[in-house]
Design a protein around this nucleic acid. Structure first.
Lengths: 202, 202
DNA sequence: TAGAACGTAGCATGAGCGTGCTATAAAGGC
DNA sequence: GCCTTTATAGCACGCTCATGCTACGTTCTA
């Protein structure tokens, strides 16, 4: 296992600890134990606790972005352009990647929210957190612009404002499902998302 | 200063520390320093760190609920029943109480989100966090039912689903504004909220 | 095969934490 | 005037933590 793989394996241990016990439990000790390594080994790959956290945050966002890109490629595929109905379904699935619909994505959302919260008081995480928010806003904006071009968005809607609204809805759904599991199930989340998108159509 | 006032003063110190430095900094030492008391004094009023946190959480929610109730009274006032337009404006202001529109409410939102996140892994906070989520859902449900009764809600809308959607939107807006100050200002938040409510009208 | 680089491990230190316990002083009832 | 209660203060203990440092085996390489 080379250095890059090892770093990623340690980051996964961070995800598991944060998902199970919260960010405050993600000490070098706990992460090392979760990864099946000695504390010194983890320190061999990461300069310190801070670097590990920053790496884990970037690793997590890289995974989500990779999944989103996979959808985006299908959406933009020039060789097999999707029909408007397909476009809409792809958009739903794409946005659903950001919701905690299964255990894997639930952990992802928890990790993401934990880092976003931590970034508020930790300068080294702050820039990346803002970057991700901008990315989400850009994503929803692009989706809504695409919808407008293909006539699936009511003409009286302000795209910038609707992007904010969609963003907020997604983050809110993700947060509530992550913090109150059992009170907001996957089907309800999807129904809310579909309702929202349907309400934007002409 | 009697015991109740002192407890409330200490809780306010908790709010300030959490708002400024995050929940993880709300140790007995830091809170005592913020309140201008010795550690032993704080421990005189609270059995331990846990009890202080639970009290602070309940105190915070009690304040928000008190403000919401003030609006609710105006909404339900039988001696001066508001017109449909007034009803709508009251509803907007009521829901806006949950958004970080000024510094006071921003701190409140941060404290609230911090506790909600902490409740995920801390059993003693969990019950109250779920209770508050249920309360928010009940509030939005009641508002939407009121809107339906006075004909301000499209008949094809499912109230239960719309309540979930409104809830998520509010939480999402609050979270994004709290975590990314400067990227989501008060005016934009209000515009999003008004747009959402307007879209529900017939 | 000698030596350098790498991966793994763990100890020592100093800081911060919650909590149990004690000390001091003011207040109030008898 | 005395004694109990209450308010305030702070020390000492045991714990976990991040980090700096050292040590040791393995692997590559020249």
């Amino acid at each position: 296992m080379n250095a890059g793989e090892r770093r990623r394996a340690v980051a996964e241990a961070v995800f598991r600890v944060v998902g199970r016990d919260g960010l405050e439990q993600a000490s070098l000790r706990n992460v090392a134990a979760e990864a099946g390594l000695a504390i010194g080994s983890v320190r061999h790959y990461f300069d310190g606790h801070n670097e590990l956290m920053v790496f884990a945050m970037r690793e997590m966002s890289a995974r989500v972005i990779a999944r989103l890109d996979a959808h985006a490629e299908r959406l933009m595929d020039p060789s097999a352009p999707p029909t408007p109905d397909e476009q809409r379904e792809i958009a739903v699935r794409m946005l659903a990647e950001l919701l905690p619909l299964d255990d894997e994505r639930r952990t992802e959302v928890i990790v993401w929210l934990s880092f976003a919260a931590a970034a508020r008081t930790r300068p080294e995480l702050r820039a990346h957190a803002d970057e991700l928010y901008d990315g989400l806003l850009a994503l929803t904006t692009r989706i809504l612009e695409g919808a407008r071009r293909s006539g699936r968005l009511r003409p009286d809607r302000d795209v910038a404002l609707e992007a904010r609204r969609l963003c907020a809805l997604l983050d809110g759904l993700a947060m509530q499902a992550a913090f109150h599991p059992g009170r907001l199930d996957a089907d309800t989340m999807l129904a809310v998302l579909r309702t929202h998108l349907a309400a934007l159509a002409p």
